[in-house]
């Protein structure tokens, strides 16, 4: 099939960087054609990795902020096919790793093989599908993902058992998405009780896969806190709120710089 075996960009980033900032935004929000512009803008502002959300009508793992951006994106006419069209020249513009995140139903309708091949074609490095369970992935999806050089990212939460975390570690590529508390996205602000204990517990397991902490990471304080227990963190709802307020390149730049700045 003429596929070139290069190291997945996600693996490269974890090899070279720490305090990785992964930023989530919804494709087609605030305007349908904003997707690539926002990606470029985030990269030039200093984001290390991007997660582009594929909007779904029924996003059960998401809080109000991402529900709203998803709904707006759908109203704008966003579809998976449109997204791939928008991303056709992604790799001429953006060099950091890019993941797609979304719910399983639209992916099934697009066709899983089609979907993975398209991902490989436009240069997507990983996929996060929260409602695709591990057992299902391993049985029916993993060979297609692997054939296309795409990492499937698994989530763990404070209630995930030790055995299951070990299994996820073994089956993971790229990174493990450590959900910061028992919650949907965007739920809580600040560092919560018991969170540090949980982060330390995971840290002490010495997993082989890198970890990014996500959900409820909203500002410099929560980002720094997460970075001291993992390879970096993921910001979603807080960035969507930024886009709602000011989606300009300068707005995006100052949001990212503020989080990544070294000063206290």
């Amino acid at each position: 099939m003429g596929k070139v075996l290069i190291m997945n960009r996600i693996d490269q980033v974890f090899r070279n960087n720490r305090d990785i900032l992964n930023v989530y935004f919804t494709a087609g929000f605030p305007d349908l054609d904003d997707t690539v512009r926002i990606a470029k803008s985030l990269e030039s502002a200093g984001a290390d990795m991007l997660e582009i959300g594929m909007p779904f009508s029924d996003p059960v793992a998401d809080g109000p902020t991402i529900q709203e951006s998803s709904q707006k994106a759908l109203e704008n006419g966003m579809t998976i096919q449109k997204l791939f069209d928008q991303l056709r020249d992604l790799r001429k513009e953006v060099s950091i790793p890019v993941l797609l995140m979304g719910y399983v139903n639209p992916v099934i309708q697009y066709g899983i093989e089609n979907f993975c091949e398209k991902c490989a074609e436009v240069g997507i490095d990983g996929i996060i599908i929260p409602d695709l369970p591990m057992s299902e992935y391993l049985e029916n999806y993993s060979s297609v993902f692997q054939a296309n050089g795409i990492h499937n990212i698994f989530l763990i939460s404070p209630n995930t058992s030790v055995e299951r975390i070990r299994e996820i570690d073994e089956k993971s590529g790229g990174f493990i998405y450590v959900v910061s508390s028992s919650s949907i996205t965007g739920a809580k602000q600040g560092v919560q009780d018991g969170q540090v204990e949980y982060y330390k517990r995971i840290q002490s397991m010495q997993l082989t896969t890198p970890r990014l902490i996500g959900f409820g990471i909203s500002d410099k304080e929560t980002f720094k806190n997460a970075c001291s227990y993992a390879n970096g963190a993921i910001i979603g709802s807080a960035f969507i709120r930024q886009l709602k307020e000011d989606a300009s390149d300068s707005g995006i730049k100052s949001f990212v710089r503020n989080i990544k700045s070294k000063s206290p």
């Binding site: 763990i156 939460s157 959900v179």
Partner: peptide
């Protein structure tokens, strides 16, 4: 059928 749920619901 099956159980297509986010990991956060898996333990429950």
């Amino acid at each position: 059928g099956g159980a297509y749920i986010p990991e956060m619901l898996h333990p429950n």
